[in-house]
């Protein structure tokens, strides 16, 4: 589908920007209990530690979306999600380094 008649403006999600627990739940279509579970397993770290006023870095939003898809599609539990996300981060870093190295080698 082409949707290029007009240009979409976007804003950078700033470093300090946060979401409330309710906003995060709405964004991902999940219950608060599930977010609590992610926090307990260290997948997600609230900016403020007081559970009643939890706020989350807006930059973590894609991580929660990925976590939701992993839970739904692969039936992973919270520790499985935590492990998968850590390994995926590591693979992304290594692939980035490999690609940069290959780009440098090609130059030579």
């Amino acid at each position: 589908m082409q949707d290029t008649r007009y240009t979409l403006t976007c804003e950078i999600v700033e470093h300090g920007e946060t979401l409330t627990l309710a906003q995060l739940c709405r964004s991902c279509g999940v219950h608060a209990e599930w977010i609590t579970l992610l926090v307990e397993h260290g997948v997600l770290e609230p900016v403020s530690p007081n559970e009643r006023q939890w706020r989350f870095a807006a930059a973590h939003l894609p991580r929660v979306h990925t976590a939701r898809r992993l839970a739904q599609d692969l039936e992973l539990n919270a520790s499985g999600i935590a492990l998968a996300l850590e390994l995926m981060d590591e693979i992304r870093t290594l692939r980035g380094r490999l690609a940069a190295q290959e780009a440098r080698d090609e130059q030579r």
């Binding site: 804003e11 950078i12 930059a59």
Partner: peptide, 25 residues
């Protein structure tokens, strides 16, 4: 699932790992 092509204004100086928000999209 649909392939969707959009024209986006990339802000100058955006960095890796940062996110762009397109409201209402």
């Amino acid at each position: 699932n649909r392939e969707r092509t959009v024209r986006v204004n990339i802000p100058k100086g955006v960095r890796a790992g940062q996110q762009l928000r397109l409201t209402g999209q």
